[in-house]
Design a protein around this nucleic acid. Structure first.
Length: 416
RNA sequence: GCGGGAGUAGCUCAGUUGGCCAGAGCACCUGGUUGUGGCCCAGGGGGUCGUGGGUUCAAGUCCCAUCUCUCGCCCCA
C-alpha cells in the first residue's frame, strides 16, 4: 500500500497561506465594491468551445494547456483556464445588457492550466478578475487601472511597475500586423529560433521577446503607434491623461503585448522584480469584440486579472486571529461541565477550545501555551466545588479564581 | 515539450578518498515540579538514506534507470 500524493502543480494550502488569500479577497470586495463592482460566480467547467472562441484557437492556452475531457454525453468540456470567457458567456446568456447599461463585475476563484509548474505558476492557480462591460469610454479603462493600483496598495504591495500600451483595434491593427510580418520575414536570419516560430504563429508576440539581439532588430521595425487610427490614438491619450490626473505612475511600453487574442486598444500589466521569472502580478486590457464573438451584441469591455499566487509572495505577513481562551479541564468528571462553559463562551462571541481528555498537567498547560490564546481557563475540582473558574493571563502570567458567571466579562473586557 | 539543481528523522540539513550498530539542530513526548506554560536540565519515540537494478568482501557514498520536488525556457496572471 503506497500513500496517495498530491498531483503536480496543485497545492495544499495551510492557514498561514490561505489566510493571505482570504485577506486579498476581502480587500478586493471592499475596494471594488466602492467602485460599483459586484461579485459574480460562474462555473469552473464550461464547454470547450467557449474558450476556443474567446481566447483564440491558435493560443498555447487553448492548444495545449487546458484540462479537457469528454463527458458521458460526448460533449467536450474544459476546466476554465481564465475567468473572462465565463463571465462574458453568462453576460450574453442572461442578456445582462438589457437590464443595465454598464455591468461592473468582479469574480475570484481557481483557474486551471496544464503547464510546467515553477515559481509563481501552478496548474491550479487563483485569480481575482474585474470586468466592466458596456462602457466604451477611456474613463472605464482608467478607472479600472486606478482601482487595481488601489487594491495592490491595500494588500501591502509596493515596488511594482505599471506598463501600458495600446494595441490598436480591428480598424488599424491588421495593417500593422501585416507590415510587421513582412519586416520580420526580411530580417528572419537575425531572430532567435523562438521568434522565427512566433513570427508566423502569433506575430505580435515577437515584440516581447527578451533577447537583446531580437530587441535590437525590432528597433528598426514598424511601430504600432504609427499605424493607429485616430480613434485609438485619442482613446489612449485620454486614458493616460486620466491616469496622470489620478496620480498613477506608469511606463508606456510599445513592446507590451497580451497573450490572449481578444484584447484591443488599452493593454496593461503590473510587474514585480521580486518574485522570479513569472514577474507579471496583474494584467488586463480592453476587449471590445469579445461579447460580439459570443453572438452577443457589439458591446465593449475592459478588465483585468491578478494572480494571487504571485501577489501572496509579495504580501507582508498577515496576523492570524488569536483565540480568546484555552480551557483546561483537570478532571474526567468535569469534562461535560467544561464543555458547557466553553459553548456558553463561544455562543457569546469568544473563541477558544478545550481539552477532550485529561492527561498530565504540564502537557495540558503546554497545549494552552501553544494555542496562543490570551487566557487559559482552569476548571478542576477546587473550582468546581466553588462554582468558579481560574482565569490565567498567558501574557502577564497572573491569575485569579472568579465565579463562573464572571468569566465572560473578564475575557470580553480585556479584549476591548 | 526542452534544460539546470535537489531528494538522508515531522522540518532544516551534516555524513570527508566506499568501511563498525546512520547523525545534529529544531519540533514532538515523558520526567525534574501531586494543579501552572515559555527558559533550563535529563531521558524518549521516530529513518525501507525517493524507488528499482548494477559494481564490490562491503554502497547514504560509485554506475545505470526511474519517480518526485524545484528553478529556468516556452507560455501566461
Amino acid at each position: 500500500m503506497s500513500r496517495i500524493s498530491r498531483i503536480k502543480g496543485f497545492a495544499d494550502m495551510f492557514p498561514e497561506e490561505s489566510e493571505r488569500y482570504t485577506f486579498m479577497e476581502a480587500q478586493a470586495r471592499r475596494i471594488f465594491g466602492v467602485c460599483g463592482f459586484r461579485e459574480w460566480r460562474t462555473p469552473l467547467l464550461e464547454l470547450t468551445e467557449l474558450f476556443r472562441r474567446t481566447i483564440g484557437d491558435e493560443t498555447d492556452v487553448v492548444q495545449k494547456e487546458m484540462y479537457t475531457f469528454v463527458d458521458a454525453k460526448g460533449r467536450s468540456l474544459s476546466l476554465r483556464p481564465e475567468a473572462t470567457a465565463g463571465i462574458v458567456r453568462a453576460y450574453v446568456q442572461e442578456s445582462c445588457y438589457e437590464r443595465e447599461r454598464v455591468s461592473r463585475v468582479f469574480t475570484c476563484g481557481p483557474m486551471f492550466r496544464h503547464e510546467r509548474p515553477q515559481k509563481g505558476r501552478m496548474r491550479q492557480f487563483h485569480q481575482i478578475n474585474c470586468e466592466c462591460l458596456g462602457d466604451p469610454s477611456p474613463m472605464a479603462d482608467a478607472e479600472m487601472i486606478l482601482m487595481l493600483l488601489e487594491f495592490l496598495k491595500a494588500i501591502g504591495i509596493g515596488k511594482t511597475v505599471l506598463k501600458l500600451n495600446s494595441l490598436g483595434c480591428v480598424a488599424c491593427r491588421p495593417a500593422y500586423v501585416e507590415r510587421l510580418g513582412e519586416f520580420l520575414a526580411k530580417v528572419s536570419g537575425d531572430l532567435c529560433p523562438d521568434c522565427k516560430r512566433r513570427a508566423a504563429a502569433n506575430t505580435m508576440r515577437v515584440l516581447d521577446c527578451k533577447r537583446p539581439e531580437c530587441r535590437a532588430v525590432l528597433e528598426r521595425g514598424p511601430k504600432m503607434s504609427d499605424f493607429q487610427c485616430a480613434d485609438c490614438r485619442d482613446h489612449f491619450g485620454r486614458v493616460t491623461r486620466l491616469l496622470d490626473a489620478g496620480g498613477a505612475a506608469y511606463e508606456t511600453d510599445p513592446c507590451l503585448v497580451r497573450g490572449l487574442d481578444y484584447y484591443c486598444r488599452t493593454a496593461f500589466e503590473v510587474l514585480s522584480a521580486d518574485i522570479g521569472a513569472q514577474s507579471a502580478v496583474a494584467g488586463g486590457g480592453r476587449y471590445d469584440g469579445l461579447v460580439w464573438s459570443l453572438n452577443g451584441p457589439d458591446i465593449p469591455g475592459v478588465g483585468f486579472a491578478c494572480g494571487l499566487e504571485r501577489l501572496a509572495m509579495l504580501m507582508p505577513p498577515t496576523a492570524s486571529a488569536v483565540p480568546d481562551f484555552h480551557l483546561l479541564v483537570l478532571d474526567e468528571g468535569l469534562l461535560e461541565d467544561g464543555f458547557a462553559l466553553m459553548q456558553d463562551l463561544r455562543g457569546r462571541g469568544l473563541s477558544g477550545v478545550m481539552n477532550h481528555e485529561v492527561s498530565g498537567f504540564k502537557g495540558l498547560m503546554r497545549q494552552a501555551d501553544r494555542s496562543g490564546a490570551w487566557f487559559c481557563l482552569l476548571l478542576g475540582p477546587d473550582e468546581a466545588a466553588a462554582g468558579a473558574v481560574t482565569v490565567k493571563d498567558m501574557r502577564e502570567g497572573g491569575q485569579r479564581t472568579v465565579p463562573r458567571e464572571n468569566v465572560y466579562d473578564i475575557l470580553a473586557g480585556d479584549k476591548s
